[in-house]
Each structure stands twice: as structure tokens, then as C-alpha cells.
């Protein structure tokens, strides 16, 4: 297993390299640059800025320079927020996004999982229909509708929670964004869990467990649930990577200083280093969580062997 993990981590290096290369040149292929503003910058200042940031060099040189910095852990300075390096921006914002996304994911897995199991155990009965209806609603109503509704009702009318802001991470400030991030995930997890649990409960070895007179708890939790977890695990990996790296919509609506907005802001302003940094962070998260998924697979299912 250890060898497998090492091998996977080694193969991540070329993967990252390819992602970085493609993103770098795609970004540069887009028209405009970080210092093309509507009003037009004084050409002398612009030339100065470009020289400072090596933008006057040939593209291949810039690319090699960026790679070299990246290997040394340097994401470079932000072009549009010149007081900060990209690394500093992430150091401030990534923990916030991870807290929100992580809480949303854990809650979605727990609650969605429980709802899915309840639905599966009462297939085609009222409890099942209720879960399916909730799940359908949860996955069809977009985040940008849920978030304002939450603000309107719970923040403005009931005044239980603040309308927005991070508030240095106070619990009341987190409720809104976490719930909004969680709902669509919860809906997906509940549906997945219901489906895979129904299939698991129908399998022959569950019939065997019942025929042996095992208790409902053992049949449902010990035998059926473990087998039903595999699809959930494979969904949770990529979902975790997406959630932990922030959401532009939720962070904007709730004025959260997370990492999600940097990707869009960076792309719009041609803030090359910021966009590249975001790409690298998302890629690393995706690679790591996919690896965790594969390891969990082997833990849950003894038929999975990697050596």
C-alpha cells in the first residue's frame, strides 16, 4: 500500500506539470494583460511595470521563470493586489474556504447519508417520497436563490444570523454559507445513498444475513451499509476538492474573504500569477482527494488491492 501511495504521488508530478503548462499558455492566449485598463495607463508606467514583472520577456522565458519559481514554492506576486504575494493571499483565504467547505461536506455526508438510508429502508413509502422530494428540491434550486432567501428570512426578518461577513470566524457568521454550500451536496448524497443502499439491501448476502437471523442493526449497518458506501466515497473525493477550494457565488453573496472569488477575479483582471496559483491549488486538492478515495476504497472493500 505504501508503495502504491508513493507511486501515485510520483505520477502526480507530471500531471501537475501538464496542468500548469496548459493553463499558463491558455491564460496568455487570452487577449489583454494585467495592466490594460479601460482608462489606459501611461505607457512609461506600463512599460516599467511590465519590466518589473518580467512581462517584457519572451513568453518561453516567462514560462521557465514561472516554473522555476513554482518549484521553489514561490507563486509570485499578485499583479492587481500588488501589496500581496499570491501565497499570502492564499494563506489568508484558503483556511476560511476550507472551514466552510469542510463543514458543509461533513454535514452533507452525515445528514444526506442518514436521509438516504431512511429512504432506502422505506422504499416507495411516504418517508422515501419525502426524501426524494427534498433531494430534488435541493439539487434544482440554485445557490444564488437559496442564499438570498436565507439572508432575507433568517438574517433580516428573524435576525438570528448576520447577513454576511466573516466576523473572524464566529459561528453565527458561518451558518448561512455552510447551509447554502451543504444543501445541494446533501441532496446528491441522499439520492446516491438511497440508490446504492437499495441495491445493497437487495443483494444475495443480505438475504443470507437475514436467513441467519441476524438483527436488523447488523443486517442494515454492518452488512448493507458498508457495501453501499463505495459510490458515496467516490463522489465525496472530487466533491471535497471542489468544496474546499471555495465557491465564488456563496463567498460573494455572504461577503466571505475566501479563495473562491480569486479565480474569477484573477481571470477577469488577467492577474496571471493569481489564476495560476488557483489552478495549482485546485489541481493539488483534486489529486490528493482522488488518492484518498482510492485508499478508502481498499479499506472498505478487501477485494481492492493495489500491489
Amino acid at each position: 500500500m505504501l508503495r502504491y501511495v508513493l507511486r501515485r504521488l510520483l505520477t502526480a508530478i507530471p500531471t501537475l506539470f501538464v496542468i500548469v503548462t496548459i493553463s499558463f499558455f491558455l491564460m496568455r492566449a487570452a487577449p489583454g494583460g494585467p495592466f490594460n485598463q479601460e482608462k489606459g495607463l501611461n505607457p512609461v508606467i506600463k512599460a516599467n511595470l511590465e519590466r518589473v514583472f518580467h512581462l517584457d520577456q519572451p513568453l518561453w522565458k516567462q514560462y521557465l521563470l514561472y516554473l522555476n519559481n513554482l518549484i521553489h514554492g514561490d507563486f509570485g506576486p499578485s499583479y492587481n493586489l500588488p501589496d500581496f504575494t499570491v501565497a499570502e493571499l492564499f494563506a489568508d483565504s484558503l483556511p476560511i474556504s476550507i472551514q466552510l467547505g469542510g463543514s458543509a461536506l461533513v454535514l452533507a455526508l452525515l445528514l444526506g447519508g442518514i436521509l438516504g438510508i431512511i429512504a432506502a429502508l422505506h422504499q416507495n413509502k411516504p418517508a422515501d417520497y419525502a426524501v426524494i422530494a427534498t433531494a430534488t428540491a435541493g439539487s434544482t434550486v440554485p445557490t444564488f436563490v437559496i442564499a438570498p432567501l436565507f439572508q432575507l428570512f433568517f438574517a433580516l426578518t428573524l435576525k438570528w444570523f448576520p447577513v454576511g461577513g466573516w466576523g473572524d470566524g464566529a459561528l453565527v457568521n458561518k451558518v448561512g454559507p455552510v447551509l447554502t454550500l451543504m444543501l445541494p451536496q446533501l441532496a446528491i448524497v441522499a439520492r446516491l445513498m438511497r440508490g446504492s443502499m437499495i441495491e445493497s439491501l437487495r443483494s444475495h448476502h443480505i438475504r443470507t444475513a437475514r436467513a441467519l437471523g441476524l438483527s436488523d442493526y447488523s443486517v442494515v449497518i454492518r452488512h448493507a451499509l458498508r457495501g453501499a458506501l463505495l459510490p458515496i466515497i467516490s463522489y465525496a473525493g472530487p466533491a471535497a476538492a471542489a468544496l474546499l477550494t471555495g465557491s465564488i457565488i456563496v463567498e460573494t453573496i455572504f461577503s466571505i474573504p475566501g479563495v473562491g472569488r480569486y479565480f474569477v477575479e484573477g481571470a477577469l483582471n488577467r492577474d496571471y500569477t493569481l489564476v495560476m496559483g488557483t489552478v495549482v491549488v485546485i489541481a493539488v486538492f483534486t489529486i490528493v482527494f482522488n488518492l484518498i478515495v482510492d485508499i478508502l476504497y481498499a479499506v472498505v472493500d478487501p477485494r481492492v488491492r493495489y500491489d
Binding site: S203, H204, H205, R207, T208, A209, A211, L212, H223, R226, G227, V300, D301, P302, R303
Partner: peptide
């Protein structure tokens, strides 16, 4: 007690 036709699938694959 009861035993079944499908020997390949009648045991839980996840437990020893």
C-alpha cells in the same frame, strides 16, 4: 436455516 443457489454472491464480500 437456509442455503441458496448463488454460492458466488451469498456471502458478504467485505468480511472474512
Amino acid at each position: 436455516t437456509m442455503i441458496f443457489q448463488e454460492p458466488m454472491t451469498s456471502l458478504d464480500p467485505l468480511y472474512t
